[in-house]
Design a protein around this nucleic acid. Sequence first.
DNA 1: GAGAAATAATAAACTAGTTTAAGAAATCAT
DNA 2: ATGATTTCTTAAACTAGTTTATTATTTCTC
Lengths: 197, 197
Amino acid sequence: MNTGTLLSNISKHINLTLKEEELLLSKVRLRKFLKGQYILQGGDICKYINFVISGSLKSFYRDIEGHEHILAFAIEDWWIGDLGSFTTQKPADYTVQCIENCELAQLSYEDLQFLYKEIPKMERFFRILTQKAYVYFQRRIIDNLSLTAKEKYLNFVKQYPQFEQRVPQYMMASYLGFTPEFLSKIRKEISFKHLKS
Amino acid sequence: MNTGTLLSNISKHINLTLKEEELLLSKVRLRKFLKGQYILQGGDICKYINFVISGSLKSFYRDIEGHEHILAFAIEDWWIGDLGSFTTQKPADYTVQCIENCELAQLSYEDLQFLYKEIPKMERFFRILTQKAYVYFQRRIIDNLSLTAKEKYLNFVKQYPQFEQRVPQYMMASYLGFTPEFLSKIRKEISFKHLKS
DNA sequence: GAGAAATAATAAACTAGTTTAAGAAATCAT
DNA sequence: ATGATTTCTTAAACTAGTTTATTATTTCTC
């Protein structure tokens, strides 16, 4: 499995020496998962933060009636997990599951604490990562508040064209906050407009 | 103005020596603002991250039609600003405005970078702060996806009972993502149920 | 403390989004 | 390849939430 993408992902924000890279990689756990497999089950403690080498995943909340509400997707070069559970080591609110077969680079909580001590720059890296995720979720709340359903959909496919190909529509509907039937209706309207112009 | 709340807020996550506290306070800018005053205007660069000593504020996104969409409220012992703009020093997406008269402790971007160097623990503090905010926004997305309007409202007043007293209803409606008229309707229904039981 | 301005309530007509149900298309397993 | 399962589409009836307009209430200002 290729750890190059992990190192280049980290080097976007901090510079590691060769020694530091080696130390980091010595702590990384490389694992393969099959489509449909659970990486984390809601209620369990999130032991690993996951970097996606290949494949795609979703994190979701399962409500009292058992319905899934998708919080995020992840593909190559993204991180995924329940950061709240990971940092507090308390039971997770969210479940993480593979949409496609996946190769992940996992860092355990203990190993990350060790790395924070040995390579303090890593703390900076995860601060920046968290900040970016924070900004993204803030934006999503605003989009939810200010856009129409059609705009939300167009906004999503424009921003994440990769997902449209790889993620089933009913999952996109869940992520966007509407029923699959309604998403289908929206897509129909859009394609009609396209034909006219 | 009392900087005690600021220090005790920080001491929730990291321990500062007296010297470090002094250094921090020497960089803090204490300022008073009147109800209605803008702390940050969307489009400007967020120069300060703000700790609320007293008063209340809102941060919101103003859409193309000029409508406000409230992202967050802040009262005593909370931090507020446009973290995305602050950390990147690029134009802000959001506007921050006082709901009541406010006393704020402000830290400028430059001073915070200086403090990160002099007191590396501060980096840890802001990482934890960001992580908490991140978890909060994640939760808000899930609540938006999984709760009914009535549940969203009850959830909000239960979680933030302080706000119900101090924030006008039309702002709460904006925060929750519905019209003031609809919030009024919901409140009426709930009070009827209350009378019956 | 009176008048003006801002906020909140009510209600009727409307629209966006859901539900239910059925059939079509795509994907999966053998 | 074929049947079975999963995903997607369509449409009609329905419900949640908005719009518009009017009145009541509270808060601000002088």
